[in-house]
Design a protein around this nucleic acid. Structure first.
Length: 474
DNA sequence: TGGGGTTAT
DNA sequence: ATAACCC
């Protein structure tokens, strides 16, 4: 957030409240007052305060499973991938099951636990995009974070609603859901007003998700992504919370450890700990210079701002995915033929997905994980361009592309793995990326009449996605 | 310890 | 191509 130099109140002020509201409104609009008293308009988007909502679905995979099979409702349910219960519903949580618990531990804690296999993400992915599309109807700038979280920048929507309000409606403005820290609302404060309207929009979003998709979730409303995300989790299943600016310090100091700060991951947390930094306060007060030397200027400045609750990163529209991948993990793969058959399986699923999407990948990548007795084993990958004659065939029948694609992938495989030597892999993954929109032949042009699928037969049943900002390349 | 994703270097 | 981050 920005420190805004709000003018001091004048002694004479016959209307203190009105003056302070005016000052805040001006600050809001990005109007700053310099030392000589002249107004300066801040560069667009650089300092103006925003209203961001973070939407976080409750135990998403479990919800999708209960929609698929309503008999599961009311029972303790876990979603299993290999030997892990990756998520579970609230009945199961009440009985001691936690996310990412091993199946062994979960069954021990809760013998009645019902498990469904969640290794195929297809239905989760589809439902996930339905949520994002629903939120895009409210405001087009929606950023996905995983399958079950979305950020929406609703600043403009809030502004429009506030401008429509009459003065009697303004004084009747109310919050929906919780207010973090039970902070009292000041209707004269324009920032409060905006966030209250934000809480109403968040409630409408959750209502629409429930009515149209049958899903419940939490929402957090705040002035940036970091704070919106942190506050969305304060009241947990199926509730929402708004953060007013005066409570932002209380919110970030409620974190017991810096690892809980989104943006500070495992590695950075370890390095910070080595510097004696473990709390948010430690990070706030640590020497910026030393931090920059240890972590690099970019990470250091970013995370130290985060520690103050400051996050100027914009909500960026995710749009259609940048990549499609399928992976499979296993105890052991030690022969080339075994690897080939696993790769074929991954590829077959991917080709279906790519076909649905309509765009064409121009790059393919193979990823492996080698067995290593201890430590965390990182992944290795090889990628190459997809030959143009294969790209052309990608939309139609998958049979012609399967064989040449497998050949390419096996070359990448042998480039990484010396198959003449013993090997032991624990994961294989295939990724299609560098997706490009297929050039659309415009009606009336030469291309249009030279494109068989357009000038003669009906259009194929590809799912359409928004073409507004799509580059037309080939 | 899964099966995905993203961005930065 | 890898490493970090997110879920």
């Amino acid at each position: 957030m920005v420190e805004l130099g709000v003018e001091p109140e004048e002694e004479d002020s016959r209307n203190e409240e009105e003056d302070s509201v005016r000052a805040m409104e001006r600050a809001q609009a990005g109007v700053l007052t310099d030392s000589a008293g002249y107004d300066q308009v801040a560069p667009a988007g650089s300092t103006s305060s925003r209203v961001i909502v973070h939407v976080d679905l409750d135990c998403f995979y479990a919800q999708v499973e209960m929609i698929s099979n309503p008999e599961l409702k009311g029972k303790p349910l876990g979603v299993q991938q290999k030997s892990l219960v990756v998520t579970c519903n609230y009945e199961a949580r009440g009985l001691g099951v936690k996310k990412l618990m091993t199946v062994r531990d979960a069954k021990e804690k809760c013998p009645q636990l019902v498990l469904v296999n969640g290794e195929d993400l297809t239905r989760y992915r589809e439902m996930s995009y339905k949520v994002t599309e629903l939120l895009e109807e409210f405001s087009p700038v929606v950023e996905r974070l995983g399958f079950d979280e979305n950020f929406v920048d609703i600043t403009e929507m809030v502004e429009k609603r506030l401008q429509q309000l009459q003065s009697d409606e303004l004084s009747a403005l109310t919050v929906l859901g919780h207010v973090y820290n039970n902070q009292s609302i000041n209707l004269h404060d324009v920032l409060h007003r905006r966030l209250l309207v934000g809480s109403q929009i968040a409630a409408e979003m959750r209502e629409a998700m429930c009515n149209q998709l049958g899903l419940t979730g939490c929402a957090g409303v705040a002035s940036n992504k970091l704070l919106a995300k942190l506050v969305s989790g304060v009241f947990k299943p199926n509730q929402q919370t708004v953060l007013l600016p005066e409570s932002s310090q209380a919110l970030i100091h409620s974190l017991k450890h810096i690892k809980e700060m989104p943006g500070i991951g495992y590695k950075t947390a370890k390095r910070l700990e080595a510097l004696g930094i473990s709390s948010v306060h430690d990070l706030q007060t640590f020497s910026s210079n030393i931090l920059e030397k240890e972590l690099g200027i970019s990470v250091a400045q970013r995370i130290q701002k985060l520690s103050f609750g400051e996050d100027n990163s914009p909500v960026t529209a995710s749009g259609p995915p940048q990549s499609f991948s399928e992976e499979d993990s296993f105890k052991k793969c030690s022969s080339e033929v075994e690897a080939k058959s696993k790769i074929e399986e991954l590829l077959a699923s991917l080709l279906n997905r790519v076909c649905q999407d309509g765009r064409k990948p121009h790059t393919v990548r193979l990823i492996i994980r080698r067995y290593s007795s201890e430590k965390y084993s990182s992944r290795e990958s090889r990628q190459c361009p997809i030959p143009s004659h294969i790209i052309q065939k990608l939309g139609t029948g998958t049979y012609d592309v399967m064989t040449p694609m497998v050949d390419i992938l096996m070359k990448l495989f042998r480039n990484m793995v010396n198959v003449k030597m013993p090997f032991h892999l624990t994961l294989l993954s295939v990724c299609f990326c560098n997706l490009k929109v297929v050039k659309t032949a415009k009606k009336g042009t030469i291309d249009y009449y030279l494109t068989p699928s357009l000038s003669t037969t009906s259009h194929s049943g590809k799912r359409s996605f928004k073409m507004k900002d799509a580059h037309l390349e080939n």
